[in-house]
Amino acid sequence: QTVHVKGVQYHFPNPEEAVKFALKVAKDLGGRVEFHGDEIHVE
């Protein structure tokens, strides 16, 4: 599972961890989380 944050990719073997990370980052940055297939983008 890959999380993209402002052009940087973070790889997580566990999808659940990836989602938790993405939600935390989005909250910290005041952004939103978008799901694109296997990828999660924080915009």
Rank of each mutant, 00 (worst) to 15 (best):
Q1W: 15
Q1F: 15
Q1T: 15
Q1N: 13
T2M: 07
T2I: 12
T2A: 06
T2H: 05
T2W: 10
V3F: 02
V3M: 01
V3S: 01
V3H: 01
V3W: 02
V3I: 03
H4D: 04
H4I: 15
H4K: 09
K6S: 12
K6P: 02
G7N: 06
G7W: 05
V8M: 11
V8Y: 09
Q9K: 14
Q9S: 11
Q9V: 15
Y10Q: 02
Y10K: 02
H11P: 04
H11I: 09
H11G: 04
H11S: 09
F12L: 04
F12T: 00
P13L: 12
P13V: 12
P13R: 12
N14C: 08
N14E: 05
N14D: 10
N14G: 06
P15K: 15
P15C: 14
P15F: 15
P15T: 13
P15M: 15
P15Q: 13
E16K: 09
E16S: 09
E17V: 07
E17Y: 06
E17H: 06
A18T: 02
A18M: 02
A18S: 03
A18W: 02
A18C: 03
V19H: 09
V19R: 11
K20Y: 08
K20T: 08
K20A: 13
K20S: 08
F21H: 03
F21T: 02
F21A: 02
F21Q: 02
A22S: 03
A22C: 04
L23T: 10
L23M: 13
L23G: 04
L23F: 14
K24T: 09
K24F: 07
K24Q: 14
V25A: 09
V25E: 04
V25G: 01
V25H: 05
A26Q: 03
A26W: 03
A26G: 03
K27M: 12
K27W: 10
K27C: 13
K27S: 11
D28R: 13
D28G: 08
D28M: 14
D28E: 15
L29A: 05
L29V: 09
G30I: 04
G31N: 03
G31E: 03
G31R: 03
R32Y: 12
R32C: 12
V33W: 04
V33T: 03
V33I: 13
V33H: 02
V33N: 00
V33K: 00
E34N: 10
E34H: 13
F35Q: 05
F35M: 09
F35T: 05
H36F: 11
G37M: 07
D38I: 09
D38P: 08
D38Q: 11
E39S: 11
E39H: 14
E39G: 14
I40F: 04
I40W: 06
I40K: 01
I40M: 05
I40C: 05
I40Y: 05
H41W: 14
H41V: 09
V42I: 10
V42D: 01
E43Q: 12
E43G: 08
E43T: 15
E43K: 14
E43W: 14
E43V: 15
